[in-house]
C-alpha cells in the first residue's frame, strides 16, 4: 500500500511521510520504554509501621502464625539485641537469625557500631516482615530473609535522618546477572520522590521493611509502645542455619538438622 501511495504522491512526499512515520515510531517506542504498570499502589512505605503487614495478613494464605526466619546482619563487631517484655535481650554478635511473625513490628537494638564517631551510640531500628518464603519443609532456617543494617544506614540514621530499607525477593525472570555474596546485600538508592516499596514491588516481591532513625528509648527504659508490644519471636540455633552452599553434598539429605 505504501508503494502505491509513493507512486501517486511523488518522491518528496514519500520521504517526508517516511520521516514522520519514523518520528512517530520513535515516540511510541519511547513511550513503551517508559512503561509503568497501570497499577494503583494503595500502600506506600510511608505508612505507619505494621500497616502493610496487617494488610498482608488479611489477604489470606499461610501467613498468620508463621515465624519467617530473618537474618539480621550488621557491620562487623556490632551487636544486636531483640526486644522482650520491658527491655532487650543480651547483645549478640551479628548476624543473628530469628523467626519473626509476619505483620508485627520488632524493635531491635544495635550496639558497638564500628567507627570512632559511633562509640557509645545505640541505634533502635525496626523490622517488619510483610511476606514469607516457601522453602522445603524442615529447611526454613537455611533460607532466611537477610536484613542488612549497613554501616552507612546506621550512621545516616544516627545523624538524624530517616532510612527505609525494603528487602525484596528478586524476580527470577528479571535478575541482575551479578554474583552476590552472603555477607553483602546489593541495594539501590531510591530517589526521594519514588516510593521504595513500589520500586521493590516492580523488581520482585517485597519481603521485609527495615526502618532506621535516631529515636532513643526513655531514660527509664523502653516503654511497651516503643517496643511495639514486644511481639514474640523465635530463636533459631545456629545448627539449623548452615547455608546451603556449605553443606556436604554427599551427606545432604541424610543428617541435615531440620527445624522442629
Amino acid at each position: 500500500m505504501s508503494v502505491r501511495l509513493a507512486q501517486c504522491a511523488g518522491v518528496w512526499a514519500v520521504r517526508g511521510m517516511a520521516a514522520w512515520t519514523v518520528l512517530v515510531l520513535l515516540a511510541a517506542s519511547t513511550a513503551l520504554a517508559q512503561y509503568r504498570p497501570n497499577v494503583h499502589y494503595l500502600q506506600s512505605a510511608d505508612l505507619p509501621p505494621g500497616a502493610i503487614g496487617s494488610h498482608q495478613l488479611l489477604r489470606g494464605g499461610p501467613l498468620p502464625g508463621y515465624f519467617q526466619p530473618v537474618e539480621i546482619q550488621a557491620p562487623p563487631g556490632a551487636r544486636i539485641s531483640l526486644a522482650t517484655a520491658g527491655g532487650f535481650t543480651e547483645p549478640q554478635p551479628a548476624p543473628v537469625v530469628v523467626g519473626l511473625l509476619i505483620g508485627h513490628v520488632y524493635r531491635i537494638k544495635v550496639t558497638d557500631i564500628p567507627g570512632e564517631q559511633n562509640i557509645g551510640q545505640e541505634a533502635f531500628p525496626t523490622i517488619e516482615v510483610i511476606n514469607r518464603l516457601y522453602p522445603p519443609p524442615g529447611y526454613e532456617a537455611r533460607f532466611p530473609v537477610p536484613v542488612q543494617l549497613a554501616q552507612d544506614d546506621l550512621e545516616t540514621a544516627l545523624s538524624g535522618q530517616f532510612v527505609t530499607r525494603v528487602v525484596y525477593l528478586e524476580d527470577p525472570f528479571n535478575v541482575l546477572p551479578v554474583a552476590e555474596t552472603p555477607q553483602t546485600q546489593r541495594y539501590y538508592e531510591v530517589h526521594p520522590q519514588d516510593d521504595p516499596l513500589e520500586v521493590a514491588d516492580r523488581l520482585g516481591r517485597p519481603m521485609a521493611i527495615a526502618r532506621l532513625g535516631s529515636r532513643q528509648p526513655d531514660a527509664t527504659g523502653p516503654s511497651s509502645a516503643f517496643l511495639y508490644g514486644a511481639p514474640p519471636w523465635l530463636s533459631i540455633p545456629k545448627a539449623y542455619c548452615t547455608p546451603v552452599d556449605k553443606l556436604d553434598p554427599i551427606r545432604e539429605g541424610r543428617d541435615i538438622p531440620r527445624t522442629p
Partner: peptide, 10 residues
C-alpha cells in the same frame, strides 16, 4: 504521614 518518622526519629 508522620507516624513512621516520629516512631523512629527525634
Amino acid at each position: 504521614r508522620t507516624i513512621a518518622y516520629l516512631e523512629h526519629n527525634a
